[in-house]
């Protein structure tokens, strides 16, 4: 074998998407660039028939269905794609168990990054504390998140604004300033 394989367009896109997600979650609060616009690329990079997905984003529904993932209620989902966050959503998410914290859900939602409510972040991946402005997240979501997290149980949140993404793992403490 002489020539090495060449990545397809799909491989290149999903590889770059994952790179952004990985660093977004590793350095909570630092906004990363996605290769394209919107959450569809996250579906491509992460979701297949091995997943249980709750999709409340009509623009994504067809794409999610094509992945073969099982469509489920929020409580049973390992991945959720929503068109808007609501204060009661954290209380409906899978948080994992003591034996399997990794069974906590991943939630992908739109938000405005760089303007809106100021949040102070701390925890793993944050060098001390970090302030970030996030809009389009309803009042009460952050307190709802705070209420349900019982580390190491919890859920991960990706906020997508066009071609930018911000990650908030369960290990991040969020204070609304």
């Amino acid at each position: 074998m002489t020539a090495h394989p060449v990545p397809s367009e799909f491989e290149t896109r999903t590889n770059a998407t994952y790179d952004a997600l990985m660093w977004a979650l590793s350095r909570p609060g630092l906004i990363r660039a996605l290769p394209g616009q919107g959450p569809a690329q996250i579906v491509e990079a992460l979701i297949d028939r091995e997943c249980a997905v709750h999709c409340a984003d009509t623009d994504l529904a067809a794409l999610v269905a094509r992945t073969g993932a099982a469509p489920v209620a929020p409580e049973a989902a390992d991945h959720l794609f929503v068109s808007a966050l609501s204060p009661d959503l954290p209380g409906r998410l899978a948080l994992g168990s003591d034996l399997h914290p990794e069974h906590g859900a991943t939630l992908v939602a739109p938000a405005t990054l760089g303007q809106g409510a100021r949040l102070r972040l701390s925890g793993p991946g944050v060098d001390g504390t970090l302030e970030v402005a996030v809009g389009e997240v309803p009042d009460g979501f952050w307190t709802g998140r705070d209420r349900v997290l019982r580390y190491p149980l919890g859920f991960e949140l990706f906020l997508v604004d066009g071609d930018r993404v911000l990650g908030l793992p369960r290990s991040t403490r969020v204070e609304v300033l």
Binding site: S8, A45, E50
Partner: peptide
């Protein structure tokens, strides 16, 4: 293709990506 790019196929990569994200979120687990 005679071989997937990076040897692993897309479904194997997706699974590893999902698991890596959880491992980042719960350090040391």
């Amino acid at each position: 293709e005679p071989m997937s790019y990076g040897f692993l196929d897309a479904s194997a990569k997706r699974e590893i990506r999902r698991k890596m994200l959880k491992a980042i979120a719960v350090p040391g687990c």
